[in-house]
Design a protein around this nucleic acid. Sequence first.
DNA 1: CTACACTACTTGACTGGTCAATTATTGTCT
DNA 2: AGACAATAATTGACCAGTCAAGTAGTGTAG
Lengths: 159, 159
Amino acid sequence: MRKRPVPVREAIQQARPFASPRAEALVGLLLTVDGLRRHLARLLEGYGVTLQQYNVLRILRGAGAEGLPTLEIAQRMIERTPGITRLLDRLERKRLVRRERCPTDRRQVTCRITESGLALLAELDGPIREADERALGCLSEAELARLIRMLDRVRSELE
Amino acid sequence: MRKRPVPVREAIQQARPFASPRAEALVGLLLTVDGLRRHLARLLEGYGVTLQQYNVLRILRGAGAEGLPTLEIAQRMIERTPGITRLLDRLERKRLVRRERCPTDRRQVTCRITESGLALLAELDGPIREADERALGCLSEAELARLIRMLDRVRSELE
DNA sequence: CTACACTACTTGACTGGTCAATTATTGTCT
DNA sequence: AGACAATAATTGACCAGTCAAGTAGTGTAG
């Protein structure tokens, strides 16, 4: 029982039509991604992590045993540097991440995912994958390819 | 001098390919909208308002002289109820919005945009419109139409 | 070897999103 | 009228993004 698509203008209860198709697409993007974000956040909160924390754990799993310095992680996220410290503080408090000063360059702090961090990710892999597939399941392969290319182009316009 | 589109996998410096096109599209959406958000926020900060505050002002301008009760505004935003109170607090402090208890139902608080609020929006209309056009200027009319329809469908899957 | 720029964080302050709990007011049902 | 649910808005507490400023450690040039 799939619901009828709700056009953007109706979704935000706006009386007047959009000034341009670009304005409509922009609002549509903001609305849709907000929904996707919330959707994923709800799934993750059952496991006690936020979307950003999950993101960091994925990055650290990818980095393997030698870990990554703090700012390396920040660079791979969409995020700016100051936030990453507190994000890691919270992950360390939950024992999902370990931090230690790098012996060769004592300015750096090396971050590594712990065993419990890995276990949590393993538990999450299936549900997350399903959520991804379900959320964008209404788009065909061809549509996905077009969407991905459009998004790449839009990002390249934003510096 | 337009830059070469940077594919999603490169943008997040991920070593392995994506598990599925849907996973790639999802990450692309998150990345792109984050960039758009930042882009708009930078424009607005020169005028002393945030993206959310601007959004509220637009809604109140649309509502006209009779204004709107607090929770009506919240409904038209993507946001949940508790945040709207504090958002309005800040707008009221800047004298861009006025609030008063509704005489017929004293539980409600009616919010209205002030003259300075309207003046600010008038000043912003041009720059915002230009920013919209520039950000999505790389997409053709046909692509925009397809994008809008795809987004509508994705949202309809998320309840 | 010492001054100085640079790097890798870290902290503080503010805006904002989210949830749970609370207050004030209204409507309804005897 | 009195009890009680429902509604409108608010408050408190936490997580997160952003900027400006600060600290500790490193590299380099005189």
